[in-house]
Each structure stands twice: as structure tokens, then as C-alpha cells.
């Protein structure tokens, strides 16, 4: 390999690294935007609950945060690699009740679609609701 080839390699490494650094900086700054209840939020996100998912050796677990959910009015369906969750709250909650002073929306329903790993056996899915948290469990396929 000639010196010129080596310089080309170094140049291409530096260019690649510079692009990675630019990306990292962009991510760092974009995530610093603070949203407070009194500021605006995208209306589409208002009905969408938070969730977290993890896997153990034997099962897949999804926890969906659905405060004030009417437990008699919820559907959980697994379809095409997705779990679809739909439910209504026990009563409509106005945005101002939970600290949003500017927007005039209310929460009366939840809707969420969550992509599920192929390793999770959705045909044996079970779920329970406790303290406004929907816990969905699926055994892992052997």
C-alpha cells in the first residue's frame, strides 16, 4: 500500500468521524428541548400512552401506562406483529386538570400500537390491569 493510499484511508476515516460527530451533536441539542405542561405539545400525542417493553429468558413483557383507564372498556389485540390497545378513561380529563394551561384538549380515550418481536408468542398473550398500568405478557417461542 502506498503513502497516498494510506492518506486516502485517513481522510475517509476523518470524514466519516466528522459526520458521526455532527450527528451526535445534532442529537444532543435536539434532545435538550424541554417541554413543560404549559407549553404546546403535538395534539396527536395526547391520547397515546407511554409504554416500556423488555424481555426475560422466558417471556416478553410490555407495560403500558394508562392512568384512570376504565378497566371494563379496554381491548388488546395482537395482529401482524403489532399489539393494538384501545380503551376509554373512567371520565374525560381536561388538559388544564393536569397542568396544561394553554391547550384546550381532553383525554377520554387511549390508543397505542406497539411492534412486537417475532420471538414473542402473541397467540398465548395474557394481560392484566393494576393501578392504571396494563401489563401484557407473552411467552417466548422456543
Amino acid at each position: 500500500m502506498s503513502w497516498e493510499d494510506e492518506f486516502d484511508l485517513i481522510r475517509s476515516y476523518i470524514r466519516r468521524r466528522m459526520k458521526e460527530l455532527e450527528k451526535e451533536l445534532e442529537n444532543a441539542f435536539s434532545s435538550m428541548h424541554v417541554i413543560h405542561p404549559s407549553m404546546s405539545i403535538r395534539p396527536s400525542s395526547f391520547d397515546e400512552p407511554l409504554h416500556e417493553a423488555y424481555e426475560t429468558e422466558d417471556e416478553c413483557v410490555v407495560v403500558v401506562d394508562v392512568p384512570l383507564l376504565d378497566e371494563t372498556n379496554v381491548t388488546v389485540v395482537a395482529q401482524d406483529g403489532l399489539i393494538k390497545i384501545e380503551g376509554r378513561t373512567r371520565r374525560a380529563i381536561k388538559a388544564e386538570e393536569i397542568g396544561y394551561s394553554v391547550i384546550r384538549k381532553e383525554i377520554s380515550r387511549y390508543y397505542k400500537e406497539i411492534a412486537i418481536s417475532r420471538q414473542c408468542d402473541v397467540s398465548n398473550m395474557s394481560y392484566s390491569i393494576r393501578n392504571g398500568r396494563l401489563v401484557i405478557r407473552m411467552p417466548k417461542l422456543k
Binding site: S31, I35, I93, E97, G99
Partner: peptide, 22 residues
């Protein structure tokens, strides 16, 4: 008031989760 607190803090939680990952 736990369920109301959870509703109120959803947006802050999203922001925080992103920063925690970093």
C-alpha cells in the same frame, strides 16, 4: 394522586428518557 401525577408528567418523562439514554 398517583394517576394524575403520571398523566401530568408524560411529556417530561419522554424528554427525560431520551436524555437518560445519552
Amino acid at each position: 394522586e398517583a394517576e394524575y401525577i403520571r398523566l401530568r408528567n408524560r411529556e417530561l418523562m419522554k424528554q427525560t428518557a431520551r436524555l437518560m439514554a445519552q
